[in-house]
């Protein structure tokens, strides 16, 4: 298999992914806030079902937050591991050259 990584581009990509991940965290927070605030303006016999749905959405959002964070972690660690490998290889060459 052809293995490759473009460190510089990956670094830029990680920055962008972090930015979108943070934006999505805020979006989900906003969505939850508005769903909760909708409940302030009515009280009918179906209110409990709306509350239950809100709770399910809230729980799902927490998983989505962790998944998005996971993307960031995977890419950062991949970059770090490749950097470490590059360092090891470079040291090995230095050793050989001595």
């Amino acid at each position: 298999m052809n293995h490759f990584i473009n460190n510089e581009e990956l670094e830029v990509s990680i920055k962008k992914i972090k930015m979108y991940k943070n934006a999505l965290d805020l979006d989900l927070e906003e969505i939850e806030k508005h769903l909760k605030e909708l409940l302030y303006f009515f009280d009918t016999k179906n209110k409990n079902r709306f509350e239950a749905l809100n709770l399910e959405i809230y729980n799902k959002n927490r998983i989505v937050n962790r998944i998005n964070y996971g993307y960031q972690v995977v890419l950062e660690q991949t970059l770090r591991r490749y950097d470490e490998l590059a360092l090891k290889v470079s040291k090995s060459f230095e050793e050989i050259g001595k």
Binding site: M1, N2, H3, F4, I5, N6, E9, L10, S13, K16, I17, Y20, K21, A23, L24, N68, Y71, L75, T78
Partner: peptide, 16 residues
């Protein structure tokens, strides 16, 4: 935007 960026990763990182 997030998934567009994640899909871009394909061209800059490749292994198992």
């Amino acid at each position: 935007d997030l998934y567009h960026e994640l899909n871009q990763v394909e061209s800059i990182w490749h292994d198992a």
